[in-house]
Amino acid sequence: MSDCAKYNTLISAAADGELGIDEKVQLEEHLRSCVQCRSYLEMMRKMSAALRDSAEEPPEKLSEWIMADVKLHNTRRIFGAYGRYTALAAVLCLVILGAAALRPRLAAGKNAMKSASPDAAPMSVSAEKSAVGDTGSAYGYADEETYDDLADGADGPMQAVNEAADPEAVYAYAADTAENAEEDYEADGQPAQAGPGDALSEFDTSRGYKKYAAADYDEKFFEVAVIYGEAPEELADCEILLSEGEQTDYRVPKELMQSLGSEGAFSEIYFDDLLGEYGLVIVLN
């Protein structure tokens, strides 16, 4: 077997037709006298054929969905695709509530966040509410009827914007975050390397936040990052997605998120689109 072991990578490459001439000659000579290696080569080929056979056709409309995303572009990229309309509506509602008060702070603060000390405190939920007026939930979720309309994607998230206060501020804010996100994003899909004053890597929680997917594909859950603190009792029954160091991520039903928001259970909210991926980050203290 030890003699055959040295032909292992050659046999694997032979299954792919990727042998050089010398390698091919070498292997063929060995295969003439080795039944086991011949069987092994055949096994590799059969396995490869089954793997090739496993390729599937994507849903027929996938390319249409992709192009629809691209055409939405500036306002779309806040949440993951399957939750995009519902979750985007949720964030836009939040932005509507806080845009007038938050925008000057966030526009400067996006750069400030990059070099902020861990002690820097963003605006609290209660401050947001008082700054923009109480429209219900601190997260500014529309009432259930509007939220569900948006989930159906009737006119998409712009419906919510048009019907809400100060749409101009919303557009401006979304464009601002999208533009800044592009600068930080590297072409190969990797987060920008952290450097002095640069965007943070995904799992850097030293400044107290991380980005997350606001809703999973069935649009019913949010991922809530709890950092440095005690989670509310309401999260006790929620599925834990990740537990690392001082951070625990929970999978929280949408309705629970809304009620926690309205109760002021979250003391800090960050909007983080630095890497062009996800929008809302919630930190509990």
């Binding site: 994507p58 849903p59 996938l62 691209v70 572009h73 990229r77 993951g80 695709a81 994003y185 899909g189």
Partner: peptide
């Protein structure tokens, strides 16, 4: 896979 595919092409377009 659908989610990821959409995200990939969206990111690619922006990047």
């Amino acid at each position: 896979a659908c989610d990821i595919t959409q995200d990939v092409f969206f990111k690619a377009y922006r990047s």
